[in-house]
């Protein structure tokens, strides 16, 4: 038993196969980091790995869009005053906590698999922010 470990890239070794690029992947790491919230995906000694992660860029621009909308509503209704700024600040504060999301996914010795990771925190955060905006706007009879 356990003479030699099965490796996804075994078929690339010697045996007259001449694709160096694949062989070099063996033992190396390909790291795809995408999230501001520190998501690590390490693929090692594998092939045919399909990875899907949360689109942080989209999340970020949505967050900014909602924040800007909240600021705009407050600026229009309360004015760009110290009072208005304090309200904006407080609103942002609600969703400030718990932004940290650390995920680490390691794929090793695999062939033809697909990996999907989700960042629920980001999604929940955006939803919460939107709820604040919608509530505020409803209170002002805008909707």
């Amino acid at each position: 038993m356990s003479k030699s470990k099965w490796r996804a890239l075994d078929h690339c070794d010697d045996k007259g196969k001449n694709n160096d690029a694949d062989v070099q992947q063996n033992g190396e790491q390909i790291v795809t980091t995408k999230q501001q919230s520190k998501e690590w995906i390490i693929v090692r000694d594998s092939e045919g790995v399909d990875i899907q992660t949360t689109d942080t860029q989209a999340a970020l621009s949505l967050q900014l869009g909602i924040q800007a909308a909240i600021a705009a509503v407050i600026s229009l209704t309360i004015g760009d005053t110290a009072q208005g700024r304090a309200v904006t600040q407080d609103m942002k504060q609600f969703v400030k906590t718990k932004q940290q999301n650390v995920q680490k996914t390691i794929v090793e010795g695999s062939r033809n698999i697909s990996v999907t990771t989700t960042d629920t925190d980001v999604a929940v955060n955006i939803q919460a922010m939107l709820q604040i905006l919608v509530t505020l706007v409803a209170k002002l009879d805008i909707l």
């Binding site: 689109d55 869009g65 960042d119 629920t120 955006i126």
Partner: peptide, 13 residues
């Protein structure tokens, strides 16, 4: 924004 958020949430969750 609501439409965009819903789309995003659907996609991620």
């Amino acid at each position: 924004l609501t439409t965009q958020v819903n789309e995003f949430v659907d996609k991620t969750t």
